[in-house]
Amino acid sequence: MKTKGTHNYYVYILTNKNKTVLYTGVTNNLKDRLYHHKNPLPFSKAFTAKYKCFYLIHYEHFTEIEQAIKREKQIKGMSRAKKETLISNSNKDWIFLNESI
């Protein structure tokens, strides 16, 4: 069992190729999660599969799951404009970050 505060959790935002759709999620393994978004099960009805959202444009690291979930909910409650500002502050050109993970 890991000591409290030694875990890794990520809140992330994905988009589609044209950057018209935003998806926010939380995970403890960002690299694996990105793989599963890009390679969904056949006939998946998941939002990310339907809208082809598997391009990472923003993520935040946390060591406590409660903090990560709280932040995910906060981001999900933001307007599109506020999400765009958040993304632009950390990734000005909205570069796809998948390969850097």
Rank of each mutant, 00 (worst) to 15 (best):
P40N: 07
L34A: 11
K52F: 14
H58K: 04
I57P: 02
D32N: 14
Y55H: 10
E64N: 07
H37V: 13
E64L: 14
T48M: 03
D32A: 12
F47C: 02
P42H: 01
S44G: 10
K38H: 09
Y35I: 14
L34F: 08
H61P: 00
P42R: 04
K50E: 10
Y35V: 11
K38W: 15
A49S: 13
C53W: 13
N39D: 04
F43D: 08
H58Q: 04
K50G: 07
Y59H: 13
E64Y: 14
Y51A: 09
R33A: 12
C53T: 15
C53K: 04
I65P: 09
A46C: 00
P42Y: 04
Y35C: 06
F54H: 15
T48I: 11
K50I: 12
F62D: 02
F43Q: 13
K38S: 15
S44N: 02
P40L: 03
Y51N: 13
P40S: 07
Y55Q: 07
C53R: 06
K38N: 15
I57C: 07
P42I: 06
K38Y: 08
A46K: 10
T63R: 08
H36R: 14
A49H: 05
L56I: 03
H58S: 05
H36T: 13
K38V: 01
L56A: 02
H37S: 12
E64F: 15
S44M: 10
F43N: 05
F62V: 14
N39C: 06
F47W: 12
T48L: 05
L56H: 09
H61M: 11
H58T: 05
E64H: 04
K52R: 14
D32S: 04
L34S: 06
P40Q: 10
I57H: 08
K45T: 13
E60H: 12
K38R: 15
F43C: 05
F47M: 12
K50N: 02
R33H: 07
H61F: 15
F47A: 03
T63D: 14
K38Q: 15
E64M: 10
K52N: 08
H58C: 00
E64W: 11
T48D: 05
I65G: 03
A49K: 09
F62K: 01
P42L: 04
P40V: 05
Y55K: 00
L56C: 06
R33D: 06
T48E: 07
I57A: 00
I57S: 01
